[in-house]
């Protein structure tokens, strides 16, 4: 039945609308401590480079690489952010992937080289157009001018805190990694220096990320698609001699992709459920991977897997509940992006 697979534009959960507005127009503070956090030292660092698809040998000190761990079929097992501290790596991942990443990393070395710091290290994220000024307000010059995907050790409340410039909403974004006991005090301090900042829950994150097509497993994968089909080429170093899944990646590249993930917008306010077929006339040519109502764009946006012959921007297609058109992504140019370009 239609109603089973096509939903109306459901309102955001209580509080999430204010969270969304804070992150898109001011600043939102989110406790992201549940993300997986691991310290790697010694030989485990080299072993990690042989595992991930990105090239860690080219990762500068105090820089972050967002890459993926693939399986032998070229599918993404987990995406990880690797922080290069010169004599160690901090590896982070989404909460849902913590167990899988912990198992993979544990195989890379003994306990003194691979340490799960998830429960001993808190992480407080602040994102939004006003977030740019927050690090400087809290830690002075040490926190200003930090480039995207860079990090620095700073002093907060007399203790060493890792401050990183990383975010997932397309706005200015920072994450403070610190002692869990200091986290509540840091949140208070952020609100003190930026009164417009709002403490946010996690519910709105997927929608914020979809608007800028930031990667999440839930929005990019539905039926065992590969990293290349999902357009995650940027997580892969194709010049790297060896990494898990490389043979599959190169074979798929040589053979050509059979499907590809594209953005779409939809006429009307219906939000098709993942898996909803996409058609050209009577022919099924793909399926919806993810969709949501975008408050900023005031329309339904989403990602769709299309057969390679149709995998192109500007194509009008059909879906239950409306007519869709494939479009370029990111869908939204954020306030922070516009400000950075000035």
């Amino acid at each position: 039945m239609l109603i089973d697979r096509v939903q109306s534009a459901a309102p955001l959960p209580a509080g999430a609308e204010e969270d969304y507005r804070a992150i898109r127009t001011a600043a939102g503070i989110t406790d992201v401590s549940a993300m997986g956090k691991f310290h790697l030292r010694g030989a485990a660092m080299e072993a990690l480079d042989r595992l991930v698809a990105g090239n860690l040998n080219r990762l500068m000190e105090n820089s972050i690489r967002w890459t993926a761990i693939l399986d032998e079929d070229g599918r993404v097992v987990a995406d990880v952010q690797v922080y290069n501290r010169f004599d160690s790596y901090l590896v982070t991942c989404a909460p849902a992937q913590r167990a899988a990443v912990a198992e993979l990393l544990a195989a890379l070395g003994p306990d003194d080289e691979v340490e799960d710091a998830t429960d001993t290290l808190a992480a407080i994220a602040v994102e939004g157009p006003l977030a740019l000024d927050i690090p400087h307000a809290i830690v002075g010059m040490d926190g200003s001018g930090l480039g995207l995907l860079k990090f620095v050790d700073v002093d907060v409340f007399g203790r060493q805190v890792l401050l990183s410039r990383i975010g997932f909403s397309g706005e200015y974004g920072y994450v403070f990694f610190l002692d869990p006991a200091d986290a509540p005090q840091l949140v208070e301090r952020i609100v003190e220096v930026c009164p417009a900042a709002r403490v946010c829950g996690p519910e709105i994150q997927d929608r914020l990320r979809l608007e800028v097509r930031a990667y999440t497993p839930a929005s990019h994968f539905l039926r065992g698609e590969t990293a290349l089909q999902a357009g995650l080429h940027w997580m892969i170093d194709f010049r790297k001699d060896a990494f898990q899944g490389r043979d599959a990646v190169m074979a798929e590249k040589a053979a050509g992709l059979v499907r590809r993930l594209l953005g779409f917008t939809l006429d009307g306010s219906a939000v098709p459920a993942p898996g909803t077929p996409v058609t050209d006339g009577a022919d099924a040519v793909g399926y919806v991977a993810a969709a949501a109502w975008s408050p900023a764009l005031e329309r339904t946006i989403g990602l769709v897997y299309l057969d390679e012959a149709y995998a192109c921007v500007g194509v009008p297609l059909g879906v239950e509940g409306g007519a869709l058109r494939t479009v370029s992504t990111p869908f939204l140019t954020t306030q922070s992006t516009r400000a950075a370009a000035r």
């Binding site: 995207l148 995907l149 990667y215 357009g231 080429h233 940027w234 194709f238 594209l262 370029s328 992504t329």
Partner: peptide, 20 residues
């Protein structure tokens, strides 16, 4: 760029995440 055309996804972000 040290890339072949099919190693560059059409929707990859050019700055920051993506190509950097």
């Amino acid at each position: 760029l040290e890339l072949e055309p099919d190693e560059l996804a059409e929707d990859s972000q050019l700055f920051g995440f993506g190509l950097g």
